[in-house]
């Protein structure tokens, strides 16, 4: 890459140095794109989605947030009805969907994407409904990586496309 000015070079070098400072990005678990859909007023459950990259074998030990009483990792299998508003109907008449709680286990050098239609973190017993534009804190604790504090964005669709 050709940098045309001295300022540009300086900026590039500075950016690289900053990127290398502190805990090395390559060596650490990274969670990104953490988001959840708004919930209807009568519902007290919500699904949270994210992407996780881990250089080493790891597993999710605990999920905590002060917005919900309990959390779990769920997998939906079987038919699911998407009512177009981004809500999955669990157990509504005419649908076959089973939810199974599984561990979130990471293989070395792996990437896990939690997206609508697939695995997601389930929040149950919401203290108050999620509203578009809201943000709240979520703490993930991984066995090897330790605590990761995240900010969840509430949006109707994936904010990062």
């Amino acid at each position: 890459m050709v940098v045309k000015s001295r300022t540009g070079t300086f900026a590039l070098v500075a950016a690289l140095l900053v990127a290398c400072a502190g805990p090395s990005g390559v060596d650490e678990l990274k969670v990104s794109n953490v988001w959840a859909r708004p919930t209807p007023a009568q519902s007290d459950v919500a699904a949270v989605y994210m992407s996780i990259v881990s250089p080493v074998a790891d597993e999710l030990v605990e999920v905590s947030t002060d917005r919900a009483e309990s959390t779990s990792l769920h997998v939906t299998s079987g038919a699911k009805v998407d009512d177009g508003a981004g809500h999955e109907n669990h157990g509504a008449a005419g649908t076959e969907s089973t939810m199974e709680a599984v561990d979130l286990v990471l293989e070395p050098n792996s990437r896990v994407d939690l997206v609508p239609g697939g695995r997601h973190l389930m929040l149950e017993g919401l203290v108050e409904p999620l509203v578009e534009g809201d943000t709240f804190e979520l703490i993930l604790t991984f066995l090897e990586a330790g605590e990761v504090r995240l900010v969840v964005e509430v949006a109707t669709n994936d904010p990062n496309g």
Binding site: E62, S64, T65, D66, A68, E69, S70, V127, E137, I139, T141, E147
Partner: peptide, 15 residues
């Protein structure tokens, strides 16, 4: 349990 900065203790206790 890990607690949020704005921890609501009843939630944490139950968990």
């Amino acid at each position: 349990p890990r607690t949020s900065r704005e921890a609501k203790s009843e939630v944490n206790g139950k968990r």
